[in-house]
Computed example of a mutant assay.
Amino acid sequence: MKIIAMIPARYAASRFPGKLMQDLGGKPVIVRTYEATIKTNLFDDVYVVTDSEIIEKEVTKNGGNVIVSTQEHSCGSDRIAEAVMNLDIDIVVNVQGDEPFIDKESLTKVLAVFKDDAQHEIDLASIMVPMKTWSDIENPNNVKVIVDRQNFAMYFSRSPIPYPRDTDIEVTHYKHKGIYAFRKKAILDFTALPMLPLEAAEKIEAIRYLEYGKKIKMVETDVEGIGIDTPEDLEKAQKQWK
Rank of each mutant, 00 (worst) to 15 (best):
N65M: 07
M85Q: 09
M154L: 12
K115L: 14
V66A: 06
M85A: 15
A118V: 14
L124I: 02
Q71F: 06
E138P: 00
G64M: 03
V147L: 13
I137C: 09
D166A: 03
F114P: 08
I137N: 08
D78P: 00
R165F: 14
K104W: 11
V129D: 05
S69D: 04
V129W: 09
Y163S: 15
V113G: 04
E138D: 11
V84I: 08
K144P: 06
A81P: 09
T167A: 13
F156T: 04
H173Y: 15
T191Y: 10
L107P: 06
K177E: 13
A118S: 15
D123C: 03
A125K: 07
A112R: 15
H73T: 09
K175I: 13
D88C: 08
N86R: 14
V129T: 12
Q71P: 11
F114I: 06
Y155A: 15
L111R: 03
G97D: 00
E170K: 11
K115V: 00
V92K: 01
S74P: 05
L111P: 04
I122S: 01
G63R: 08
D123R: 03
S69H: 02
Y174R: 07
G76H: 02
N86A: 04
P140K: 12
I161W: 12
A81F: 00
V145A: 11
D88F: 12
V113Q: 04
L188R: 04
T70E: 13
E121I: 02
Y180K: 10
A83R: 00
F190L: 01
N86K: 03
T108N: 07
T167E: 14
S77I: 11
D166V: 13
N142R: 10
G97Y: 04
K144W: 01
V145E: 08
I91R: 03
Q96R: 14
F182W: 10
K175A: 15
E170I: 07
I146D: 01
G76K: 10
A153Q: 03
F101N: 13
I80P: 05
S74T: 13
V129G: 06
A81Q: 01
G178M: 13
I91C: 00
N94C: 12
N62G: 11
A181Q: 00
N139H: 12
V68I: 09
E121N: 05
L124N: 01
P140N: 08
Y174T: 10
V93A: 11
A181I: 01
R149Q: 15
L87H: 01
W134R: 08
V92P: 01
Y174N: 03
G178K: 13
D117I: 02
D117N: 06
K109H: 14
W134M: 10
G178N: 12
I169R: 14
N142K: 06
V93E: 04
E121P: 01
V147K: 12
H73V: 10
V66Y: 09
V145K: 05
V110M: 05
D103L: 07
L107M: 14
D78M: 03
V92A: 04
